[in-house]
Amino acid sequence: MIRLDVTPESAGWGFSGLRVVVLAAGEEYHCSTGGDEVVVVPLAGSVTVTADGEKAVLTGRASVFDGPTDVAYVPIEAALTLRSDAGGRFALATARAGRRLPFRYVPVAEQRIEMRGAGNCSRQVNNFATTDVLDADRIIACEVLTPGGNWSSYPPHKHDELEEIYYFEVDGGGPAYQRADGVHEVRSGDVVLIPDGWHGPSMAAPGYHLYYLNVMAGPGERAWVIEDEPEHAWVRDTWTDQEIDPRLPFGPGKGRQS
């Protein structure tokens, strides 16, 4: 079952997309990637990814709050199959691309797991499809975990020429908030689309840990260019004397396990 399907056409832009597929035990999902390169990200459960005569068995995780996951990169113009023996929920982060690159399995050991910020701006960033980790044509993707009561995607910032998708899950079913052309209340399964401009923070309500998957692509060079909103950039300087939130990093047992 396709639970969510954001395409460049439905978003009204040119490059970034996201699909969330839910599989029952033993179920398969088939599609052609067409003009999109794809990063398969297990949100809950394990999955076997087959494409281009290649296969990767993604161990995945019980939930997004149980630590980082291995992922698979699938090129354009490929016949893609997902199969999950036990069932699960899987994100397909996509970008319209012009180069056909090889299928690739990206284990957690090859990713860059980063603790960013400090104090109540502490968050965990799992970099699995950023420019320093994955060779791709256009797609940039990572996931961010923010302990309840903390702020992330902060200071407010923008990414020149990058269309950005935020996909949210909230531990325990609570609300969270995203500033982007106003403030949006979000819950698990919601998305916020950011075609351009200043955005952030992402706010985790006290008692509810926040997860979001970022998917970005654009017409220019594949580069993660970040520019802080000038009036708030000074906040970074306040982190030097603060400790990282001790609730990080996330791993098994760290979430509410609702």
Rank of each mutant, 00 (worst) to 15 (best):
D181C: 05
I165A: 03
V71Q: 01
P75N: 03
R19N: 07
G60S: 10
V192F: 00
A180K: 03
F168G: 12
P102C: 05
W239P: 01
F90E: 12
K254F: 07
E161Y: 15
A118P: 13
Y29W: 15
P107K: 06
H30T: 09
V106I: 04
D196K: 15
G117L: 01
E110D: 13
S152D: 03
P147S: 05
A97S: 02
E163H: 05
C121E: 14
R116I: 11
G45M: 06
H199D: 03
P249H: 10
R83A: 11
V225F: 14
S32W: 05
L58Y: 06
G220E: 08
I194R: 10
A56V: 10
A97N: 01
W234C: 12
Y29D: 05
F128H: 04
R104I: 00
I165F: 02
T69L: 03
R89H: 12
G189C: 10
P201H: 10
A86I: 06
G17C: 06
L101Y: 08
V74R: 04
A233L: 04
A223T: 15
D160W: 13
T59S: 12
V125L: 14
N126E: 11
L80Y: 00
E37M: 12
Y73D: 04
E169R: 04
P147L: 07
F15A: 06
P195F: 03
M115S: 13
D70H: 10
G253H: 08
G12T: 09
A176L: 03
S10K: 08
T81M: 15
E77N: 14
G149R: 04
H199K: 14
S32T: 12
E54W: 08
G207A: 09
P246N: 01
A136V: 13
S202K: 09
W234T: 02
V225E: 13
A25Q: 00
Y212T: 03
W224S: 05
E37S: 02
W224Y: 07
A109F: 00
